[in-house]
């Protein structure tokens, strides 16, 4: 037996409320991210991820309360991304109870932020989120600002750079596949997984269970998905049973 591949449900949170989430009758308040996270935790999620998509500073400040309340009742690793621009932003989230923070655009603007966070909080606390899109001539280009702005950075080189700077893992999203339900860009996953020695989390494009297996078989250490878990389409338990049957090392609770 070896290290289990991780299944990570991701919740988009805006102004302290879940934007899209599971719709269980058992939830008192389906818009409360904490209740959703607790439900995933009870199902055996290996980690929980919040992506804060609030547009305003007031909206973003609500995530701290969400993280605090989550940490009081969820005893599993919690990653929080979105709007982290400085070491101080990261520190506030970690103090509130996050185990890892994810940085994206701010790391592109100032790669030294990755180094500073790793030195301050340890490599394990820093996830670099990389949004990559295929280039017509081959390879991938890194995008910032939620996938809106091309940065002229090569995906492989950027992932290697952030790994060298002390990132603990890479959250890799295919812009081509995100939201399509067509499955991960498995070539992107396998290319990056081979290019770095830190764990890679595959994200973007899951529409069915077989896609999760394909991402893991391509070399991802963990898979992150949102919509497949939401609306009760699949429970974490169902996903894990499917992947275990496919022969992947999975923690069954």
């Amino acid at each position: 037996m070896t290290l289990a591949r991780r299944i990570i449900p991701c919740l988009d949170v805006k102004d302290g409320r879940v934007v899209k989430g599971i719709n269980f009758v058992s939830l008192r308040d389906a818009g409360d991210p904490v209740e959703q996270a607790a439900a995933y935790d009870a199902q055996g999620a290996d980690e929980i991820c919040y992506l804060d998509i609030s547009a305003s500073p007031e909206g973003r400040s609500t995530i701290l309360d969400v993280v605090r309340r989550t940490a009081n009742q969820v005893f599993a690793p919690l990653t929080v991304g979105g709007g982290v621009r400085t070491v101080a932003d990261a520190e506030r989230l970690l103090e509130a109870g996050a185990d890892k923070i994810a940085v994206n655009t701010a790391a592109i603007r100032d790669p030294a932020l990755v180094t500073a966070c790793a030195e301050r909080f340890g490599n394990q606390a820093i996830v670099v989120a990389v949004d990559a899109k295929r280039r017509p001539g081959g390879g991938w280009e890194v995008y910032s600002h939620g996938g809106r702005t091309p940065e002229g950075l090569d995906g492989v080189a950027w992932c290697q750079q952030v790994a060298d700077r002390g990132a603990g893992e890479i959250l890799l999203t295919s812009m081509d596949r995100d939201g399509t339900g067509q499955g991960y860009d498995t070539e992107l996953v396998s290319t990056i997984a081979r290019a770095v020695t830190i764990p890679v989390i595959a994200s973007g494009g899951v529409g069915e269970l077989a896609h999760l297996a394909a991402g893991l078989e391509a070399g991802a250490d963990a898979v992150l998905a949102a919509s497949i878990f939401h609306f009760g389409q699949h429970t974490i338990g169902e996903v894990k049973a499917f992947l275990a049957k496919a022969g992947l090392p999975i923690r069954i609770c």
């Binding site: 290290l3 290996d46 490599n123 020695t197 070399g219």
Partner: peptide, 15 residues
């Protein structure tokens, strides 16, 4: 094995 990543991060069985 290069496929085994460092940090050792995630859930592992307790032997």
């Amino acid at each position: 094995d290069p496929a085994l990543k460092v940090p050792h991060m995630g859930w592992n069985r307790l032997v």
